[in-house]
Simulated assay, not measured.
Amino acid sequence: MPTPERAAPDARPAAPGPAAPPDSAVIRDALGVGVAVGLSGFAFGVTSAGAGLGVLQTCALSLLVFTGASQFALVGALAAGGNPLTAAAGAFFLGVRNAFYGLRLSALLGYRASVRPFAAHWVIDETAAVTMAQPDRRTARLGFTVTGLSLYVLWNLTTLGGALGAEALGDTKAWGLDAAGPAVFLALLAPMLTTTVERAAAGLAVVLVLVTLPVLPAGVPVLLSALAAPAVLFVQGRLDQRRPDRGRGGNATGTAHRSDAQEDPR
């Protein structure tokens, strides 16, 4: 009497996780981020000197604060005549986001309690991005260390160079160097604008700033430029609603053809 066939067990191996990249690739990517962003320290040194800060004050900000967005926000507010305490408070709250990065990186890196205070000084946008892109703890630590070290060293060296250069030139506004900071940010942002919607939002933001800058108080044009993104998204949504849905007919036709093909010709 034949025995019933048993179902063969599922011998398929579990899907492997992503393979760890070689150390050379991690170091290359980390150095690329560190060098590219570190060079913008020149712009901060020039901007800070143009805001009235001395070379020692400028360098102290880069050494002790080490978060570019907060540093630019501080010196930008001071250059616009803002209150120093208000400028410092704004820079502080802008840097609070790094604390949320730290919560995630603490679990990824797994440093001892004695090392965490030193590593926390390097927790910024760039180190967080490189670290979280790695598949395991070893490469995460390598990416964090190389990015943080290269960026910290280069940022402080270029800050010093920018501050000394601006001091030697004298009036930075006469040379147009007060626009160095915004120009660097635009240069870093431009390659990331890959879609029509992103480019439209960026262009509208620039127009809003240029139109309102001569007539509104300092800081208000930048806040108004933030309205560019929702405005462009609203227009894009209305256009999508008016555009005829051509995909339905094609999908229905394709489904019908597939159904006919699957019928038994007999």
Rank of each mutant, 00 (worst) to 15 (best):
residue 24 S to I: 12
residue 11 A to N: 14
residue 239 L to S: 08
residue 154 L to P: 06
residue 7 A to G: 05
residue 265 P to R: 00
residue 151 L to Q: 13
residue 168 A to R: 12
residue 193 L to A: 13
residue 135 P to A: 00
residue 61 L to C: 10
residue 85 L to N: 04
residue 39 L to V: 15
residue 82 G to A: 15
residue 180 A to E: 00
residue 215 V to K: 07
residue 46 V to T: 14
residue 258 R to S: 12
residue 13 P to E: 07
residue 161 G to P: 02
residue 101 Y to P: 00
residue 55 V to N: 05
residue 249 G to M: 10
residue 184 V to R: 06
residue 200 A to Y: 08
residue 155 W to P: 06
residue 184 V to W: 06
residue 206 V to R: 03
residue 18 P to L: 02
residue 84 P to F: 04
residue 92 F to K: 03
residue 16 P to N: 01
residue 188 L to F: 02
residue 88 A to Y: 03
residue 214 P to K: 10
residue 83 N to F: 09
residue 160 L to I: 04
residue 161 G to S: 08
residue 248 R to T: 15
residue 50 G to D: 04
residue 48 S to Q: 07
residue 88 A to F: 10
residue 202 A to Y: 05
residue 134 Q to C: 04
residue 90 G to L: 07
residue 21 P to A: 00
residue 251 N to I: 12
residue 213 L to P: 03
residue 74 L to N: 10
residue 215 V to P: 08
residue 9 P to G: 06
residue 133 A to L: 05
residue 180 A to T: 00
residue 206 V to H: 04
residue 111 Y to L: 15
residue 126 E to L: 04
residue 254 G to F: 08
residue 156 N to G: 07
residue 114 S to D: 14
residue 80 A to P: 00
residue 197 V to Q: 15
residue 143 G to L: 00
residue 73 A to V: 14
residue 188 L to R: 02
residue 147 T to W: 01
residue 24 S to V: 13
residue 109 L to K: 01
residue 231 A to T: 15
residue 64 L to T: 12
residue 61 L to K: 08
residue 62 S to R: 07
residue 176 G to P: 00
residue 258 R to A: 15
residue 153 V to F: 07
residue 148 G to R: 03
residue 201 A to S: 14
residue 72 F to D: 02
